[in-house]
Each structure stands twice: as C-alpha cells, then as structure tokens.
C-alpha cells in the first residue's frame, strides 16, 4: 500500500512537490502574508466617529495624522531610542558573558551556565516585569533599599526603567547567538593573532568581532524587534511613558484603522533594518 503510494508520487514529480509545499505555503500566504495584507488595507480605512464601526472607503487620513501630529513622531523616536539602547546594552553584557561561557569555563560549568542563561525564559513575562516593578519603586523598592545607603537610587518608572526591564528580558536572546559564534571561533586564531604580536584589543577588533558580527546581528534582530513591539513592559514599569505598542493597544478597540496604521511603523522600521543588515552581508554568513 505504502509502496504503491510512493511509486505513484515518484512518477509524478510535480504532484510530489505540491503535496510537500501545500501546508507551509498555505500558512505563509494565507495566514501570514494574508494577515499582513489585511493590516495594510485596514490602515487606509476610516471609522464612523460615533459608533466606531469601520467604514471601508479608501482614505489617507490616518497616515496624515501619523505624520503631522508631533506626539506620534515623539513616540516613534522614543521607541527607536529604547530599542537601540536595549540592543546596545544587551550586546555589551552578552559579549563578555558569552566569551567566558565558550572559551574559559570548563565543559561542565559551561553546561550549567547555558542552563542558567535559559532559566529566566521559563518564567512568565508578567511575573518578571512585576518583579521589576517592586525593584524599581522609588523610595520603597528593592534597589533603593539595597543600594540607597551607598548613594545609588532607583531611576523610578519611566524611560530608564523600561530600558532596564527590556534589557533584562531579552538578554538571553543575545547571549545565545553570540555564544554559538564564539563556539565556532577556533582558539588557534586567537593564538595566532597573539603570536604575531597583536595586543588583546587589536585581536578583538580585527579577529573576534568580524567573525562574531553575524551572531551579533542575529541577536540584535531579536532584541531590537522584540523591544520595538513591546507594550506590556511600558504599561507596568513605564510610568506615564508610552511606546509604539501602547498606541496600537490604545487604538485597536476605538479606531482599528489607526491602530493598523501605527502598526505599519515597526514593520517599516524592521524592513529598513533588515535591508541595511543585508547590505553588510551579515545575513549570508548566518
């Protein structure tokens, strides 16, 4: 029975290919691109100002509001700033951590360290952010209680709070690719560089970083895009600050088309980012 089916498919290569691809293509085209396309289309609709029902007529008002209202320009710039800072902080923290894990730690410690890096991912996002809320609370929080006596105070809820919270959340996504990158870096290269007289910093700049670059880019795509779309962290520890995601959340029930317009912004930013990364050639060596 099985054999006859397989013979049947063997003789019809086109049917075989179709059967193989129908499920992923259905997912990609209908569920994935379809959703994106309907988002794009909705962005050009408008609403009945009283009942909030969507009116399906083509209209550029939402984009006009997005580009002319300075509040929305601010929120885009602010979100970009947060996403960039988070990415830079994660990179700076992940580089030495991953280097230690891959090159210095003994094999047993190495396994333990990888497990430790992964454990925070097992806890709920909300629990972690609410924990940061108690840490960051001005005057009564853990940071002020612990570090207040030596003169360090919590930045409180707001811009700095969001950056700390998001850096904490996304750090594992940066450590893991860089760790994998270091694993691929042969020790002999470092030795050779040293033998040829290069100082540590020179070796880092000319040997380590070029090889690690694709890994850092891979990690940054996680930290950057996850930060760009986040809104729960901003709600809980952002004080009165809002990010792009909050604007979408605020508008989706009241003005769905405008929410769709706003959600095009991170998509466009990520598109530009990926394009820029592709130009550097980092994607081909991933």
């Amino acid at each position: 029975m099985l054999k006859s089916i397989s013979t049947w498919f063997h003789n019809r290569p086109r049917v075989r290919l179709a059967a193989l691809l129908v499920a992923p293509l259905f997912w990609l085209v209908v569920a994935y691109l379809g959703a994106l396309a309907s988002l794009l289309v909705t962005a050009f609709y408008t609403i009945n100002t009283f009942t909030g029902n969507v009116i399906r007529t083509f209209n550029l008002g939402n984009f006009q509001e997005l580009f002319t209202n300075p509040s929305y320009r601010n929120v885009v710039v602010r979100t970009l700033g947060i996403a960039l800072s988070v990415t830079i902080i994660c990179t700076l923290l992940a580089l030495p951590m991953a280097f230690f894990m891959a090159k210095i730690a003994k094999p047993r410690t190495q396994k333990v360290l990888v497990a430790l890096v992964l454990t925070p991912l097992w806890a709920s996002y909300l629990v972690k952010i609410y924990a940061w809320r108690t840490m960051l609370e001005p005057n009564s929080g853990v940071i002020d209680w612990l570090l207040g006596p030596i003169g360090i105070h919590s930045p409180g809820f707001g811009f700095a709070g969001i950056i700390i919270g998001l850096s904490y959340l996304w750090l594992p996504y940066m450590i893991l690719p860089i760790y994998a990158g270091f694993e691929r870096l042969p020790n002999s290269l470092l030795d050779a560089s040293g033998d040829l007289g290069a100082k540590n910093l020179y070796t880092l700049r000319r040997v380590v970083l070029p090889i690690l670059f694709p890994s850092i880019v891979a990690g940054s795509m996680f930290t950057f895009s996850l930060s760009l779309g986040d809104y729960i962290t901003a709600t809980i520890i952002g004080g009165k600050l809002q990010m792009l995601g909050n604007v979408v959340y605020q508008n989706y029930s009241l003005n769905l088309p405008f929410a769709a317009t706003m959600s095009m912004v991170p998509i466009a930013i990520m598109g530009i980012y990926l394009w820029a990364v592709r130009r550097t050639g980092a994607l081909t060596s991933l």
């Binding site: 085209v29 691109l33 289309v41 009945n48 009942t51 399906r56």
Partner: peptide, 24 residues
C-alpha cells in the same frame, strides 16, 4: 507575484465582510 495575489485575496476577503447600512 505571490505578494500581489495575497494582497488581492485579502482585499476580496475583507470586502466580503458585513456591510453596515446604518446612517450617521
């Protein structure tokens, strides 16, 4: 081509939704 087919499909799909006859 795939993208244009997808977006056309989405247009048709969204157009098929209920139409409101409520006046303002």
């Amino acid at each position: 081509q795939a993208l244009s087919v997808a977006s056309a499909a989405a247009l048709v799909l969204s157009g098929c939704g209920s139409s409101d006859s409520t006046s303002d």
